[in-house]
């Protein structure tokens, strides 16, 4: 029944407001080393361990990560990773909730479709998106779906 009420409520909202703006950065610190973004439904690792890894090492690091009593951590896609970039700030271009975030390069799991040897990265100094050879070193911030 709860779902039913939810849908009725949403339909009412839909009726009266055509413009539902994308909610701004709503990031909740869960106090257990993780941060929840309720607008994207993603849970983030709050602090990177500041260890530079190759792409493959980064991937296995996330897959083996046990944090906030969850085991299903993974490397984020490039669009997931840029969803936490705060383009209003610089060095680091990320919200304060991600404590002591290093303004460095972070791996995403999105490989370049035209160059398989490269994967996408985000420079959290400014929020720039580029690609890097998988053998290069970069930092990691893991992610998981809330559910």
């Amino acid at each position: 029944m709860r779902l039913q009420y939810q849908i009725i409520l949403l339909m009412t909202v839909l009726l009266f407001s055509e413009n539902i703006s994308a909610a701004s950065d709503v990031l909740l610190d869960n106090q257990d080393g993780s941060v929840t973004d309720i607008t994207t439904g993603l849970m983030w690792q709050r602090e990177s361990d500041n260890a530079a890894r190759t792409y493959n090492d980064a991937k296995s690091y996330c897959n083996n990560l046990s944090l906030a009593s969850h085991l299903n951590w993974r490397l984020p896609s490039i669009k997931e990773l840029t969803s936490i970039v705060d383009y209003r700030s610089d060095s680091p271009a990320i919200g304060n909730v991600f404590a002591q975030s290093n303004s460095s390069t972070y791996w995403s799991n999105t490989q370049r479709a035209d160059m398989q040897a490269e994967s996408r990265v985000v420079f959290f100094s400014t929020g720039r998106v580029n690609s890097s050879f998988k053998t290069n070193l970069a930092l990691v911030r893991c992610v998981r779906y809330i559910k």
């Binding site: 849908i7 949403l10 339909m11 839909l14 055509e18 413009n19 539902i20 703006s21 490039i78 840029t82 370049r112 035209d114 996408r120 400014t126 929020g127 720039r128 998106v129 580029n130 690609s131």
Partner: peptide, 27 residues
């Protein structure tokens, strides 16, 4: 190539506009 960067505002680039309207979608 999907890169995202900054450049000088006097440079000339292409433009694609957007609006917030949701259109009519299922709940």
């Amino acid at each position: 190539d999907g890169t995202v960067r900054t450049t000088d505002k006097n440079e000339k680039n292409f433009v694609r506009c957007v609006r917030d309207g949701r259109g009519f979608l299922l709940p």
